[in-house]
């Protein structure tokens, strides 16, 4: 136990020290006048500004979080269901899956302006954009998991009389959960980026909009504060998925679980 604590501490302090050094360098660069504060604000000034406008920041963060969660939830659920359907209908999969892979090469965010054109400036086009972005990594990861079930386990279950449905529920689906979570981790990071991007297109609410309006208004401290908050939201959501994975995929040996996102 003590050993483990030591090892996690020894993993944390080097990057923490580098980060602290960078912040110190940044702060001194501004304080000593190497860069103008209106171009790049000092870290302390960013934090002071964030505290000063805290309620507004929180309101915008709430919008962004709402958009991210609806889009991520919708995209992940749609991806999950579609992966299961394509897996159970191999004929359809052969026709549809290559197109999915091709469409992954299109950066989905370029569809942003088109979505705005079609659906206006409300929540709907933004949610649709986030859904589309989250959808693909989940489908691809889940399908790969479903079709890579352990052949020895499959052979055993078939020998004792398991049919297609039993194989799906007892073998393929539980076996694909690890893959599903690797897809969810990618999707959740994408979901924040795409939500912020969607907000840039119609900058009324949300951190993305607040950030772009602040930079247009020459308030760099506010832009940086918004950016900082976006990073924090993204990290928190990623952490939430990792936590859920530990809770759901609890059969794995500890050593593997610890290095799963390395």
């Amino acid at each position: 136990m003590g050993n483990k604590k030591n090892s996690s501490w020894s993993a944390i302090w080097p990057p923490a020290a580098v980060l602290a050094a960078l912040l110190l360098f940044w702060q001194s660069a501004v304080s000593l006048g190497w860069v103008q504060a209106w171009r790049i604000p000092a870290p302390i000034a960013v934090v002071q500004e964030a505290i000063a406008i805290w309620p507004r920041l929180m309101m915008h963060a709430g919008y962004t979080l709402q958009l991210t969660l609806i889009g991520f939830g919708g995209g992940a659920a749609a991806g999950f269901v579609l992966a299961a359907l394509l897996h159970l209908l191999p004929g359809v999969r052969r026709g549809v899956y290559p197109l999915f892979v091709l469409s992954q090469n299109v950066p989905i965010v370029i569809l942003g302006p088109i979505m705005t054109m079609l659906f206006g400036y409300g929540l709907l086009p933004k949610v649709l954009l986030v859904i589309m972005v989250c959808f693909f990594p989940v489908v691809v990861a889940m399908l790969s998991g479903l079709s890579h079930a352990d052949p020895a386990l499959r052979h055993y279950l078939q020998m004792i009389g398991a049919g297609k449905w039993t194989l799906f529920w007892r073998l393929e689906l539980p076996g694909s959960l690890v893959h599903l979570f690797s897809g969810l981790k990618i999707a959740v990071s994408y979901s924040v980026v795409s939500a912020v991007f969607a907000e840039l297109l119609a900058p009324k609410n949300g951190l993305g909009g607040f950030m772009v309006l602040s930079s247009r208004g020459f308030m760099p401290e506010r832009s940086f504060a918004a950016a900082l908050l976006i990073i924090i939201v993204s990290l928190l959501l990623f952490g939430l998925i990792v936590w859920c994975e530990r809770f759901v995929v609890k059969w794995r040996p500890k050593a593997e679980g610890g290095s799963s996102h390395a």
Binding site: L153, Y156, I160, W251
Partner: peptide, 11 residues
């Protein structure tokens, strides 16, 4: 059936 590998479902 008892296969060569124990084939226990890990989950």
């Amino acid at each position: 059936y008892m296969p060569q590998q124990a084939s226990l479902l890990p989950w």
